[in-house]
Design a protein around this nucleic acid. Structure first.
Lengths: 304, 304
DNA sequence: TAATGTATTTCATCCAAAAATAAGACAAGC
DNA sequence: GCTTGTCTTATTTTTGGATGAAATACATTA
């Protein structure tokens, strides 16, 4: 009856995912041991995770015999929901961007404002510092590195991405994981077919991020991959909203699908060129929007 | 008689640097207040720093009147000497590279091995994690991401740098800080003129790093700057030794000087091309060395 | 024999209190 | 009026113990 810890929840989800990947159905038997090995973790948390699943009625323990799968897990439930720290980071970034936070601030003040404990806050500040959003002051306190409503950052960001992402497709070790193209295609198609709602923005952002990060990973160059992942982390803090409407979603997704087709055909040169113009277009978009300075910022992500 | 804290030591050094930059000589008077303002810090640690300098005989306090500078600080003492955490990071990276550390390891084991406290260790691990050298395991412990003696990383690193550093010189906002070229030139000339010793390796590395980071900063693109700084941080962990002998130092420095001349003349296109071939040459060098796999690794930095 | 069940050990985090240190205010001296 | 000296307050860091969780070893059962 103890509430499951984060690791245990995580393991429970991954176990269901493993079951799905292996195509197991109701009546199959699971093994604590092999699950623990596959998840690279000891049996203890796996046991707890299975207990958790048993409480939900998905599996049943047979004493001294094993664990029986009762029903195949249907549709993916939620996927990774952002934890409390992630959420606080987004709130801090938003408040800073909209000018609600001063240039310099102490840890205690942040703890009070966002009602989080010190260890969490410190991890959070460390992450923000690595993204070059803040730095420690000598002595006490922290300082934000960019002013609120820093417009030039958008152009710099896209110019940086233009340097590495198109070239990543041309790296000698480039190799896509099997099935990746198809999975991405499916996700994009679903986005296009489903009706657009405000709440789709986060899912759309994550799909976008996965697309670019997946290609960077395929480059085989860990530094390109790392740089793109960083870009996504930063963007996640300020861009979880999408203010360009559904027609831009369509254009964006079509361009992605075209790149996927091109890559499947093996024409990396062309894909690289497409990526370049894709990013250029996105840069223009941002810039045009940035002119009024506030509209995209005040659209609130995570409000619900 | 209390031992100076890290901030105080830092301030003491920076005060000396300020004195030098302002061209003050023996007999000049320092003010706690203005120093505190310039250093963006309260008077308390500045006072302590000055007390520290007084104990070393560099300044003298005159009660209720001020602080007298006794002797102009001559040659830069050490420059920033790496703190204990930095040192431990280098040791960990080296031990990992040479295979002395296993793929997975617990925090306590690291605390025992390197004799550091938990908070220091945690900061250190967080930094290593941001450099993509390690990651948390689910459950307890940490895992190194790259195997020891990972040769492919060198080529990937240089291919990444080739994407961004030459292009950084062509960014529209490119602007060098006044005096930067001259200062860099001086440091390079001194390196070339001074006799080469093993202990010069660290200074040489830092000059190198400052050269590349300075150009990246001048690009006016914060993401390029940030990426190059990250590269330097990573390189610092494994490349503090220099195993190519003095002749390579000469070649390297000459190439840097040539770029400085070209930039001074305003020809950024040519400078960009020079940077490209500079990095290509450095990549070749690494690769040729990497063939035997161990020599450069076992040459120990910081052993004395 | 290979799995689960149970107990022990090791490890990491959390919490509260105390110590250290910086920031800020006020008084005193030149 | 500006400086340094002194004091108070606010913030941060450290520390030790307590709690909780994971890894590991051992016993038990099909």
């Amino acid at each position: 009856m103890t509430s499951p810890t984060k690791l245990q929840q995580d393991l429970a989800e991954r176990i269901l995912q493993m079951v799905k990947e292996d195509g197991l159905g109701a009546g199959a038997w699971l093994s604590e041991n092999s699950a623990a090995r596959r998840l690279n973790v000891s049996r203890t948390p796996v046991r707890a995770a299975i207990d958790h699943l048993a409480r939900q009625g998905l599996v049943r323990r047979h004493p001294n015999k094993g664990v029986e799968l009762l029903s195949a897990p249907a549709g993916m439930a939620g996927g990774a929901l952002p934890d409390i720290a992630e959420l606080a980071m987004v709130r801090i970034a938003r408040d800073r961007e909209s000018g609600k936070l001063p240039d310099e601030i102490s840890e205690l003040e942040l703890m009070r404002r966002y009602e989080i404990g010190r260890p969490e806050l410190q991890r959070l500040l460390a992450r923000l510092a690595d993204l070059d959003m803040i730095e420690r002051k000598p002595g006490y306190g922290w300082r934000f590195l960019h002013g609120p409503r820093d417009l030039s950052a958008h152009d710099e960001r896209y110019r940086f991405r233009l340097l590495i992402e198109p070239m990543g497709l041309l790296e000698p070790g480039f190799a896509l994981a099997p099935g990746w193209i198809e999975e991405m295609r499916t996700r994009h198609r679903e986005t296009l077919e489903r009706p657009w709602r405000e709440s789709s923005a986060i899912g759309f952002f994550e799909m976008n991020a996965d697309f670019h990060e997946g290609l960077a990973a395929a480059s085989g160059n860990r530094f390109i991959h790392s740089a793109v992942r960083r870009q996504n982390q930063m963007r996640r803090l300020s861009n979880y909203d999408w203010t360009f409407g559904f027609e831009r979603v369509v254009v964006n997704s079509r361009e992605h699908l075209q790149m996927l087709d091109t890559l499947e055909a093996g024409d990396r040169e062309l894909a690289s060129a497409l990526m370049r113009s894709h990013l250029r277009r996105a840069m223009q978009l941002r810039r045009a929007d940035g002119l009024d300075g506030t509209s995209s910022i005040d659209a609130v992500a995570f409000q619900n």
